[in-house]
Design a protein around this nucleic acid. Structure first.
Lengths: 328, 328
DNA sequence: CCCACTTATACTCATAATGAGCATTACATG
DNA sequence: CATGTAATGCTCATTATGAGTATAAGTGGG
C-alpha cells in the first residue's frame, strides 16, 4: 500500500512500485553429540531457501514447505529472524531486487538418510572462534593479531582509535570479558577487516597480505551472516525463554540439558549451580526413570513441563517494581 | 534466489516466482508529558508507511525517507520489528501480494507544526487496558467480563478450558500478576474474541451482543497490531538495553528518566530503588547543573554516558557461569 | 522568619539470587 | 574391595532486590 497521504486510508490502487522477489531462508538448528548444528545444502555451502510463493499462506508456512521439500526434515519451533534487502547484498542477482526473510527453527536432528548434499554441520565449522567450552580457541590469537594489524592500518588516527575500540568491544580481550552473545558484531568486524572469505570474494582483494587465516568455512551469498544472526539470537534467547527443550528429546538428564546449553552458548557452566537453577525455575519434572549409562552414579531423567509455557513470567525484570513482586 | 537444489549455488536466473509489493511501516515512538506517543497520519488512523522502492539503498533508509517525507520528522535510533505477509492480512489489497516490513524508531517529539493529519497520539488511546500506572484501568473489568463470556461460548469443553487458560495467562487476573510485556498476546486475544473494532470490521459481525466495549481507537488495516508488536518489543527491551535515553533530551533528572520508563512500561516504579539501579549501572553521569522547577528540593541533572554502549555487558544472564563473573 | 508542603537524596534491613566450592552417594570396573 | 566417575546435596560469602524510614533543600503563605 502507498503512504496514506497520497492515496487515502483504505489503499486504493496499488502503487506503481517496482515489484520484488521474495525469498525465504531457514536456519534449522539442532544439537547432537555435544555440537550445535545447522541443516545445510550443497555440502555445507548454503542454507535451505526458496522463493516465497503466492501459494504460501504465510511466510512461516512457506519456510516449512521449502525446508521439507529440500531436506525432508519437518520443523517444530520456528521464529522469524530478520529481513534483508540491502541493494548490494547478493552478488549475481537477477534484474529484480530480492527481499530475504530469514527464520530460525529448532529441532531434533533426524537420523534419516539425507538427500545428497544435505547435512548437519557444526556451527563452529563456520565460526571457529565462537567455541569457548575448552577455553579460548586457538584461532583467536591469530585473529586478534590480524585485527590489530587491520586497526593499525586505518587512514586517520581517529579511525585507528575507532577500530581498536570496536575490536576490544567485540572480543573483550583484556580481563576475560568474552561475551558469547556478540556473534554478529564479531563476524561483521572480521568481514570488514577482510578476514572472512566472503568479504575477500566480494572485494576481489586479499587484504592483510593475502594470508588466508583459518576463519571458518565460507557459505554462499550472505548465508553465513544469517547464520551468525541466528546464533546470536539463540544464545540470547536461551537465557530468558525455555527454548533449549526444543532441541532435546522428550526426556533427558540434567547433564544432557546442560551440555545442550553449553553447546549453544559455547561456554562451560558450573554444574551444581546449573542444577540449582533448573530446580528453582521448576521448568522440568522427573520422569521417574533412571539413566545408568553415565559412567558414574546413574542420573535421573527429566521431562520439560510444557505447561510452564503458559504460566511463565518473562525474563528477569531490570525494573524496581512498585507493589508486591511479580517476577515469577 | 531459488533453492540451491534446483539452480545451483550461485543463483543463476531468478525464479519464475510471483513478484510482490514491498511496503515499509514505521512505529515512531516518543515520550512527552508523561505519555508514550506514536507518530500517526490521518488523525491517528494510520502509521507512516510507503512502498519500498528500488531507489532505496536499504530497508532502513527507505523507512527514514518515507517518514521524513510524510511527517517531516527525522529519525534517530531505528530497528527492525517484524515482517508481515499473511495472505489475508489486508482488506482491500490490489492484485499483488504485499510484504510489509515494520520498523520501530525512537525519537524526541518534534515541536514543529505538523502537516494536516500528522500528529502524536498516546499509545493508551489504542490500548487503554495497558496503562497501569494508576492501578488497573477501569476498562479492564468490562474487558475481563466480556472475555469470560467469550470463553464460555466455546464450542467444546476443551475449547472453553483453553480459552479461559489463555485469558488467565494474558491478563493474569488472580494475584496481581500483570505482565506488562504481553501486549501482543492481549491484543490478539481481544481480536479473536471480536472485542476489537478491526476484528468486527473484518468479520462484519458484532459478536458479544454488539456492545461496543471501549477497547481503544481503531487503525487502518493491521496497523494497531503492528503498534502492539512495537510496544511489546520496547517494553521488553527497555529492561536490558539502555534505549530509554533515545527518548529523552540530552540532560534530564532521575524523575524525568523514571517517568519515561514508567510511561513505556505502563507501571509505577519504586523511586528510591530506581535511583539505586541507575547508580549501580553507571549509565548516567551528573551534568553539574541543577533543575529547580521541581516543586520540591531541586534535582541534579544527568546525561547518558554514551560510551557505555561500547562497554555494556548484555542483559542479565540466566546462566550459572564457570570462571569468574562477567555480568557487568 | 517560621510554616507546611513537595520532591530529592541518603540509608537501613530483611530476603532472595548468584558464584564458588566441598562433601557424599551410587553406580561400573578390575 | 579399591578406584574412578558422575550425580546429587549442602554450605557460605557476596550481591541484588523489595520495601521502607529518615533527612535535605527548595517552594509559597502567613
Amino acid at each position: 500500500m502507498t503512504g496514506p497521504l497520497e492515496t487515502g486510508p483504505t489503499g486504493g490502487a496499488p502503487p506503481a512500485a517496482a515489484p520484488f522477489d521474495a525469498e525465504l531462508i531457514a536456519v534449522v538448528a539442532a544439537v547432537t553429540a555435544r555440537m550445535p548444528r545447522v541443516l545445510t545444502l550443497e555440502t555445507g555451502r548454503s542454507l535451505p531457501s526458496g522463493p516465497f510463493e503466492s501459494a504460501h499462506r504465510s511466510l512461516q508456512s512457506g519456510v516449512r514447505s521449502w525446508v521439507e521439500r529440500q531436506t525432508h526434515h519437518p520443523l517444530g519451533h520456528i521464529e522469524q529472524l530478520y529481513t534483508f534487502a540491502d541493494r548490494d547484498r547478493l552478488e549475481n542477482s537477477g534484474p529484480r531486487r530480492v527481499i530475504s526473510v530469514s527464520y530460525l527453527a529448532l529441532t531434533l536432528e533426524s537420523r534419516m538418510d539425507p538427500d545428497p548434499g544435505v547435512g548437519w554441520w557444526s556451527w563452529y565449522r563456520y565460526f571457529p572462534w565462537e567455541d569457548h567450552r575448552q577455553g579460548p580457541p586457538p584461532v583467536l590469537g591469530p585473529i586478534l593479531d590480524a585485527l590489530e594489524r587491520w586497526a593499525s592500518h586505518g587512514a586517520t588516527a581517529a579511525e585507528r582509535r575507532m577500530r581498536r575500540g570496536r575490536c576490544r568491544h567485540a572480543f573483550r580481550v583484556e580481563g576475560h570479558g568474552w561475551n558469547e552473545e556478540w556473534v554478529l558484531q564479531r563476524y561483521e568486524l572480521l568481514y570488514e577487516a577482510s578476514l572472512i572469505a566472503e568479504a575477500r570474494r566480494r572485494n576481489r582483494d586479499a587484504a592483510n597480505g593475502g594470508d588466508p587465516l583459518r576463519t571458518g568455512e565460507a557459505m554462499v551469498q550472505d548465508h553465513r551472516r544469517i547464520l551468525a544472526t541466528a546464533i546470536a539470537r539463540l544464545r540470547a534467547k536461551i537465557k530468558y525463554r525455555p527454548v533449549v527443550f526444543e532441541l532435546l528429546p522428550p526426556s533427558f538428564t540434567y547433564l544432557e540439558l546442560q551440555q545442550a546449553v553449553e553447546a549453544i552458548a559455547g561456554l562451560k557452566l558450573h554444574k551444581q549451580n546449573f542444577r540449582r537453577l533448573m530446580i528453582q525455575q521448576k521448568l522440568v519434572e522427573p520422569t521417574g526413570t533412571i539413566e545408568s549409562r553415565t559412567g558414574g552414579r546413574p542420573a535421573r531423567r527429566y521431562r520439560f513441563r510444557r505447561d510452564v509455557l503458559m504460566e511463565q513470567a518473562p525474563g528477569g525484570s531490570r525494573l524496581p517494581q512498585e507493589r508486591g513482586g511479580r517476577r515469577i
